[in-house]
Design a protein around this nucleic acid. Structure first.
Lengths: 230, 230
DNA sequence: TACATTTGTTATGTAGTACATAAGTACTAT
DNA sequence: ATAGTACTTATGTACTACATAACAAATGTA
């Protein structure tokens, strides 16, 4: 009972299996040789022999790297190093139902942080057309205000903001986080709207300063900020 | 030449291999049965038989899920579902040398966004001690201002900010992104310091408003913002 | 000579068997 | 009743065999 912190300083003893080791070794190999995408890798049997393990083990390790997009394999041509898609690996794990409560909370906060910080990129890159699009989206939402539409609109509007930021990775990141927000919001007793509407935000973006916009965004998200736990 | 966008609308034809399919099926299985961490899974041979594939294939798929921390296996006891550590999967892929140029740029911008948005959490959770610690760090840096120390100090100071935010996931996320920033900054012709120093920021945090702090952070990061490409 | 077809080679993909190992479980002896 | 032993079982590793796709070379035809 002396330690109520779930993570003690004693790192978990992880029974390293051969595939684990081989995966690590392969990673080191790739890094050390500073191979570039497109460069060929030794074939499986050679790797197996060099490492002194069965092809089975090598294949398990390669299968992992393949999943992460670090290597691509083609029959006969062998394997080549590839640009991993950093988000696809993330995506596989992002399932609200298997993520711990604390992490869910952290990710929800992450969204708030992102949206507050996004103003910089938005103001650096917004165009007249972007603003017009955003206003259209906000206006469209005035009509169909209730029911399942709300969530869809929420996504469309905020998604557009990320799009304006001109950062594809960020945009995709947001898309992936959506199920999490959805999940967290659903667990809230009721949906509380901020004082600043989507249309207000769009207008701020058109005529207001960066600071104005950020203040508006804060008000818009205020119900969530108010729920922050210390 | 009609399409200068590297990603065309034609989704890449991904030759699905059996492990890919089995991995997917297992994921669906876990989600659909809404299994909770600790719940046991069928044994490998049963899975193989149910799916009509060899145990080899099942093991490759399981190996992937194991790597992501979604399942844990113990000899004889079988396999159980586990809370995946969402960041560890990310970590494996985050190597500047194999990430594409565009993604690197995106991630660098992500950091800027995070630090600008962080003010909310920081002001919601900062304590007197936090501010004092931060000032100490900033002061310590006044002395050893040159050479390799700069990077280390930079990390220590900004790391403390994330710590104050009280969001573990965010903090770890930042830690993982460090090599990327380092890499990107190194490719810049020279290091340009902002007008607002670390000590200034610490003082703002102590006495200034949230808006003051954010303005200070903007000035601190301004050299980077100025380099933003449209 | 130029081009289409066939054949061969090679590296990955999948299946199947065998055995090692660790961790429960049941049984036995004192 | 408890300690110790033997048994059972599910994962971990190795090995073999063959299917398949892709490239290369050789062959045949105009």
């Amino acid at each position: 009972m002396a330690d109520k912190n779930p993570k003690s300083d004693l790192g978990k003893i992880v029974q390293q299996t051969m595939p684990d080791i081989v995966e690590m070794r392969l990673r080191e190999y790739l890094k050390q040789k500073s191979l570039k995408p497109g460069d060929p890798l030794p074939k499986e049997v050679d790797l197996a022999e060099s490492l002194g393990v069965s092809r089975n083990v090598v294949r398990e390790a390669l299968s992992r790297l393949r999943m992460l997009g670090m290597v691509e394999t083609k029959k006969k041509r062998g394997m080549v190093l590839a640009h991993p898609d950093i988000l696809s690996s993330f995506e596989r794990v992002l399932d609200p139902s298997i993520i711990g409560e604390n992490t869910l909370k952290d990710i929800f906060e992450l969204r708030l942080v992102l949206e507050m910080g996004l103003a910089e990129l938005i103001y650096a890159r917004k165009t007249k057309k972007d603003v017009e699009d955003l206003k259209q989206i906000a206006l469209k939402q005035m009509d169909e205000k209730k029911g399942a539409f709300r969530v869809k609109n929420e996504i469309e509007f905020h998604g557009k903001l990320y799009e304006i930021s001109g950062n594809d990775t960020l945009k995709r990141f947001q898309q992936m986080l959506l199920p999490i927000f959805d999940y967290v919001v659903k667990t809230e007793p009721r949906f509380i709207s901020g004082k600043v509407s989507h249309l207000d935000l769009a207008n701020l973006l058109e005529k207001g300063s960066k600071e104005d916009f950020r203040r508006g965004m804060y008000e818009h998200l205020k119900p969530h900020f108010d729920r922050l736990k210390r």
